[in-house]
Design a protein around this nucleic acid. Structure first.
Length: 1007
RNA sequence: GCCCAGUUGGCGGAAUUGGUAGACGCGCUGGUCUCAAACACCAGUGAGAAAUCGUGCCGGUUCGACUCCGGCACUGGGUACCA
């Protein structure tokens, strides 16, 4: 009997579910069961939170889950208490967009999608502890997300202790101090009004409300965080994004910049992710520097100094102008009467230039002279002050000292506006381009002359500080994170406004439940959807905050909630977090490098500062799985290129499609009876020419070919299965054209008009291309059955089983590499599973003997154990599948069915193919699950060899082999080898210059 | 532009980290079984008639390089005026 995966997989999935096989003890009670002396060590394996999208799971999603599941199961076999949970990041835009279109509450959409995800996940046989499932959109969960927000609001970052503290410690500091305001007023803290106090403290709170330059996306009707904007458009949907000043809730992540950077060194994450975070944080060390302003010709009262930030104070003598950001505070004051008009026009221009435009023409240099001058701090020369949008207000001081000789942007600006370029570091050719390298000796630089750049920077800072012109300073590229979204489907921010003062809810008033609204759209006045909620006021009096939290709020701490998911008293109990600490292995996509992975580190550090958790990092080890790309299939459609005449309506005409070959009409049978929706498709390998002919007007109308997507589920090797394609998703009267044949869809069947007997040429071809898997590209392959009305396209699980899917996804290649999905090799894995089954069976019956194993059999087993352990611990899952294949091949060869061999084999393969392993385990006479069996110990003694077959090489090229006893000393091997007949042949009578013998490795003869 | 990966047969990919390049699987070819097919099993399969040549290209270190060093090209991903 063949292995019946359908029945067996179902059986074990039900067993695991009923017996809660994967339930993790929390923490394991040492008293559980008499005499249980040792407490198992813990191990936490986590997958990145999935967003339950309506498209369901595709074959790419489980890649990481399979890898982590193998690791979790392996750790259980190794005697660990494993926490391996799963849940859903269930707030998010798609469900809300769907709600806007259909009116269906996003909660219903989300629940349906989750049910579908769960069904798919269950089919793959994951060992999740489902009792710990969390959903971010569940009030029992987001209650604590809101609670953490309140803690952020009630905290400030104390630079002296270098950690977050209660805001009360800051109020205490202020108590006896006087506060100076921007407008020059000075007041005692105690005499401030409540509003003034609130405003003051908002400047310090880690969650704060302020006027912030935000990425506004009009189409989505919301602001976006920096990492949600890709190339000037929104990451989701691809809508344009513009800069806008808005009052917004933000989180002061910048306070943690230094720690987020430094602690990267202590965690075992991939270098590329760490590098991405380092770049995103963007630390640069330099100095601030004051430029005093030249006397004002108009004599008006104005500021006296411009402060710039520079990392190259050594180039101070190369400064030939100063550039301010167009939005800089001083611009207005510095603009002289004659330049006023120009400056104002430029500011308007710069403001309206969207991010995308700026992105598109980075090379375009724009800027205007203000008319004012600053004084060079060392030479006393007058330096013109310009504004230019290459200077960003948000970075440094929003002003730069331009050194065109040694900064490419300043260089471009200077060239464009014909400003002087001065060389101060020797080594480049500044007549051609700027010399940006930090190498070379200083020239034209007074007291810095002759110094190397590094020394010059030091000296320059020292002199600047001595003359009190500025101070050594560190800047970060990292911006505070905008935390409010003008959307419905998110956590309500637990804030209300009393007389314009933002106040947080009391902890016992949580959760602040998301209210019902009539529509999921902004109000007429542009308020977010929550403003639609009826009678939704704090104590029936005060307005609640109307924006909701961003998608990443709930995922910034979920790893903690899994430790203690049902706790109603606190977000995670001290006992639970003290036991589980943090994630030992985190697996997920690299796309979260600067978003989720930065925020979760930030929240972890914050919660640690408050003494709520014992760890400062969320995950010790992080592995990024590669993306499984889709193979999109393009189908060519023939369109009518309408005639130029305005009165001519092609769609209402009767047209003849002429098919030509080498300019000769070979067919013109197709008529297009004014049918607007009829589609004509052309095979990708078709060499025919086409034209539409209008009989009435007696003229030819042009054609146009457009490539669209065809659903890959009806395509095998770029050949369209026209039958399925049309049955599953009917298109109105389509026509398909190949070189030698065409098809007509009439009365629910294809009529074939062939012009050849060569059946192979009947294939209708599409053009494949590797692209990201997405619903819109029709290239999504799901692991299980796909339904098209009554039609079902069988999925891998139904065709080959879950174990096969698991093994195949691993077999495809290294986990972290991206690769396109193809099922070409799946039969090999499927065969392997059957072969494994046959090793234990003879026909129907189990056929395992209790005889002691032979030496070669033990050698095969232990060789495999050694390799598999090495592979798992190095996350090299693809090679372990190969090693299982080799093992089973060799045991089959040896006709081995000894219990001593096949029983341990079932255990080591169990993490990879758990269903078949459970079944074999049971047949072998065990009554409990294989999950908690003991991983067999590797014994070197079985691998010890007495001889080695040495490759004999000449000048590094292997020519033949010779076996020698391992005990034989090097000298003797050398002697023996040289006497061999074959050696003489390759020596061709010459004397070897040198003979290298590496014990147990190789013999190399140098001729 | 900058940063990070990667480039090995017809294809996916191995190579214990400097020691037999191409494991394992797919595909292909031939054979056994079958009326036939599928399954299964057996043999072969980098190129070349051979000597030999072969890990993107050029050079170097070494007895020996897919592996280390220098330079270049291409592919994929990230990032973008950060002073």
């Amino acid at each position: 009997m063949e292995y019946n995966f359908r029945e067996i997989e179902k059986k074990w999935q039900a067993y695991w579910h009923e017996n809660k096989t994967f339930k993790a003890e929390n923490p394991p009670s040492p008293f559980q069961g008499e005499g249980r002396a040792e407490v198992k060590p813990k191990y936490y394996v986590l997958d990145m939170f999935p967003y339950p999208s309506g498209a369901g799971l595709h074959v790419g999603h489980p890649l990481g889950y399979i890898a982590s599941d193998i690791f979790a199961r392996y750790k259980r076999l190794k005697g660990f208490n494993v926490l391996h949970p799963m849940g859903y990041d269930s707030f998010g835009l798609p469900a809300e967009q769907y709600a806007i279109q259909t009116g269906q509450h996003p909660d219903i959409t989300t629940k349906t999608n989750i049910a579908r995800y769960r069904e798919q996940l269950d089919k793959i046989g994951f060992s999740f502890d489902w009792d710990r499932e969390v959903r971010t959109s569940d009030p029992n969960y987001y209650k604590w997300t809101q609670w953490i927000f309140i803690q952020l609001f009630n905290s400030w970052y104390n630079p002296e202790t270098n950690k977050a503290e209660s805001i009360d410690t800051l109020t205490e500091k202020f108590r006896n101090a006087s506060i100076s305001f921007g407008d020059g007023r000075v007041k005692d803290f105690d005499s401030l009004s409540e509003k003034e106090k609130s405003d003051l403290l908002l400047n310090y709170r880690l969650a704060y409300l302020s006027d912030t330059m935000v990425n506004w996306c009009p189409q989505l009707g919301t602001v976006l965080a920096n990492e949600e904007v890709k190339e000037g458009v929104s990451e989701r949907g691809g809508y344009p994004v513009e800069r806008k000043l808005m009052k917004q809730w933000s989180l002061r992540i910048t306070a943690y910049a230094e720690r987020l950077l430094k602690d990267l060194d202590g965690i075992d994450w991939t270098e590329s992710i760490k590098e991405a975070q380092r770049n995103w944080i963007g630390k640069s060390e330099g100095t601030s520097l004051k430029f005093y302003l030249s006397p004002n010709p108009s004599g008006n009262q104005r500021a006296e100094v411009i402060e710039v930030f520079t990392t190259r104070p050594d180039t101070i003598f190369g400064v030939s102008f100063v550039t301010l950001a167009p939005e800089h505070d001083l611009v207005k004051q510095l603009t002289t009467e004659e330049h006023k008009k120009e400056i104002e026009e430029y500011i308007t221009f710069a403001k309206n230039r969207s991010e995308r435009e700026r992105m598109a023409d980075v090379k375009k240099i724009t800027g205007v002279f203000t008319g004012s001058y600053a004084i060079h701090p060392f030479t006393g020369k007058q330096i013109p002050i310009w504004i230019g949008d290459y200077v960003l207000l948000g970075y440094g001081t929003g002003a730069v000292m331009a050194v065109p000789g040694h900064d490419s942007r300043d260089y471009a600006f200077a060239k464009h506006f014909n400003l002087p370029i001065i060389e101060v570091v020797a080594g480049g050719d500044i007549s051609k381009e700027s010399y940006d390298a930090k190498e070379g000796k200083l020239v034209n630089s007074d007291f810095l002359n002759g110094l190397e750049v590094k020394a010059a920077i030091k000296k320059a800072i020292a002199v600047i500080e001595e003359k009190e012109l500025g101070k050594g300073k560190t800047n970060f590229r990292l911006r505070d994170a905008v935390f409010g979204r003008q959307r419905y489907w998110g956590e309500p921010i637990p804030v209300y406004y009393e007389n314009g003062i933002p106040k947080v809810l009391n902890e016992n008033e949580l959760p602040l439940v998301l209210p019902e609204v009539d529509k999921y759209l902004p109000t007429e006045s542009g308020e977010p959807p929550l403003a639609r909620a009826k009678d939704w006021k704090y104590k029936d009096k005060f307005e609640y905050e109307h924006s909701t939290m961003p998608g990443w709020a709930g995922s910034s701490w979920y790893f903690l909630r899994y430790m203690d998911p049902k706790n109603e008293k606190t977000f995670v109990s001290k006992e639970a977090v003290d036991y589980w600490q943090n994630v030992d292995l985190y697996i997920g996509g690299a796309e979260h490098a600067t978003g989720h992975l930065l925020y979760v580190r930030f929240w972890t550090k914050f919660l640690n500062d408050l003494g709520l958790i014992p760890v400062t990092e969320p995950a010790k080890k992080l592995i990024n799985q590669g993306m499984i790309q889709g193979v999109s299939e393009y189908i060519l459609e023939l369109l009518i290129e309408p005639k130029q005449s305005a009165h001519y309506d092609t769609l209402k005409r009767d047209l003849i499609l002429r098919i030509k070959k080498d300019g000769v009409i070979i067919n013109e049978v197709f008529k297009k009876y004014g049918v607007p929706h009829q589609h004509i498709y052309i095979s990708a390998d078709c060499n025919l020419e086409f034209e539409f002919f209008d009989k009435i007007e007696n003229c030819v109308i042009g054609t146009n070919k457009k490539a669209g997507y065809a659903d890959v589920n009806f395509i095998v090797n770029s050949v369209l299965n026209i039958e399925l394609w049309q049955m599953a998703e009917p298109i109105y009267k389509p026509i398909l054209i190949c070189d030698e044949a065409f098809w007509h869809w009439e009365r629910k069947s294809w009529t074939n008009h062939e012009r050849t007997n060569d059946l192979d040429r009947y294939k209708f071809k599409t053009r494949p291309e590797i692209e990201k898997m997405s619903k819109s590209k029709l290239n999504v392959v799901s692991p299980d059955d796909r339904h098209y009305g009554d039609f079902i396209i069988a999925g891998i699980i139904e065709q080959h089983g879950a174990d096969c899917l698991r093994l195949y996804e691993m077999f495809l290649g290294p986990l972290e590499l991206s690769k396109p999905w193809n099922t070409n090799g799946i039969s090999g894995v499927s065969n392997f599973i059957r072969k494994l089954w046959r090793l234990y069976h003879n026909g129907e019956a189990l056929n395992v003997s209790n005889e002691p194993a032979t030496k070669p059999e033990l050698k095969v087993l232990h060789k495999t154990i050694k390799k598999i352990v090495h592979d798992i611990e190095n996350f090299s899952f693809n090679t372990s599948v190969s090693n299982f294949m080799i093992c089973v091949n060799e045991l089959t060869e040896l006709k081995c069915n000894k219990r001593e061999i096949v029983e341990p084999l079932a255990i080591i393969i169990a993490p990879y193919a758990p269903h078949i392993a459970e079944e074999l385990w049971q047949e072998l006479g065990h009554t409990d699950s294989i999950t908690y069996a003991t991983f067999p110990e590797f014994k070197e003694e079985y691998l010890v060899e007495s001889a080695f077959n040495y490759p004999i090489s000449f000048n590094g090229k292997t020519r033949f082999f010779q076996e020698y006893d391992l005990a034989l000393p090097k000298e003797d091997i050398e002697k023996e080898v040289l006497t061999l007949e074959q050696t003489q042949k390759y020596l061709e009578g010459k004397t070897p210059k040198k003979v290298i013998v590496v014990h147990n490795k190789i013999v190399n003869i140098v001729v």
